[in-house]
Amino acid sequence: MSQETKPEVLVADGPVRLELHAGGVAHLRLNRPESANGLNVELLRALHEAVLRIHGDGRVRAVLLTGEGKNFCAGGDVHTFLSKGEALPDYIRVATSLLQLAASALIRLNPPVVSAVHGFAAGGGGMGLVCSSDFIVAGESTRFLAGATRVAMVPDAGVSVTLTQLVGFRRAMEILMLNPVITAAEAKEMGLVTRVVPDAQLLDEAWSLARQLAAGAPAALANTKRLLWNGIGQGVEAAMPQENHAQAFLSGTADAREGLAAVIDKRAPRFTGR
């Protein structure tokens, strides 16, 4: 990132940080690097609050979303989920609701959202944020993974609709049910990301795109964004309550607990249908 005047810090610490830079670019940073920015209730609540803060700040002309550490976002925090035991469905119900609120808020923001993606973007969190962003700049070593059915759950954050629109029905079925690890080049070819750049250039390229958008006509860009999202927005919002219900139900099954344990143990899960 090039030198600029010192940004205004809007959220200084916690699981999400937010700064306003010169030219009107808000930098929104996921800040749980020790957990690969895995999503728990605290991070999700902070993310939603930060997006609402951006929504209420007329100075913001574009948003840059990044993840601290080695990964953009590895999805839900499986360690936290597994630790909840029999209380997991209640926790998942809250977490999924907050993730859906954050994803909807990103979609409905007037300023365009650019996500700079590195490492892994996985699960409902990683894929959900990718699918809810307007532009995705990915480093060439980035990998994408849906992963929900791998732990006996379902996609959330509206991914059951947005991914289908981005890559097509058949490919979305393959991604969500077979859980292939998708390279950045494959993601670009299928329409999941906007640009793929060398890893060392990721932040510079993402900042350049965010600044280009921030210099545009804000009302024209906001209305163009709204027109494009309105075509699928109602479908996304209709799907989210169904995703939430299914997620909460499935998280109470033995298969879901086995799937989470298998991810932590780095082994293949043994599903029994219970």
Rank of each mutant, 00 (worst) to 15 (best):
A121Y: 00
V197L: 02
P198D: 09
T224C: 08
A95H: 06
A116K: 01
L52T: 11
V263C: 08
G85F: 08
L129H: 03
G216Q: 06
E186D: 15
R211M: 05
K188G: 08
E189C: 00
R226C: 00
Q242S: 10
Q242V: 14
R143K: 13
A215R: 13
R53H: 12
A210V: 07
L52V: 10
S251V: 00
A172H: 01
E42C: 04
L178A: 14
R226E: 11
G67R: 01
S208F: 10
K188V: 05
I232K: 09
K84P: 07
K84F: 09
S115Q: 09
G58M: 03
Q201I: 01
T66G: 06
F249C: 04
R143Y: 06
I232V: 15
A172W: 00
K70C: 03
A217C: 14
G126C: 06
Q234L: 14
A219Q: 15
E140M: 12
D13R: 13
L18I: 04
R257G: 09
V25W: 07
V263R: 14
M127A: 05
P7H: 06
C131L: 07
L28M: 06
L203A: 14
E8L: 11
C73T: 03
I54G: 05
A122E: 14
A239Y: 00
V181M: 10
D255Q: 08
A268Y: 08
G168Q: 03
D134L: 01
A184H: 08
T142A: 15
L129Q: 06
V196L: 06
L145D: 01
G23C: 12
A262L: 10
L209W: 00
K266W: 10
P269H: 11
G191S: 07
A122L: 09
G58Q: 09
V130G: 02
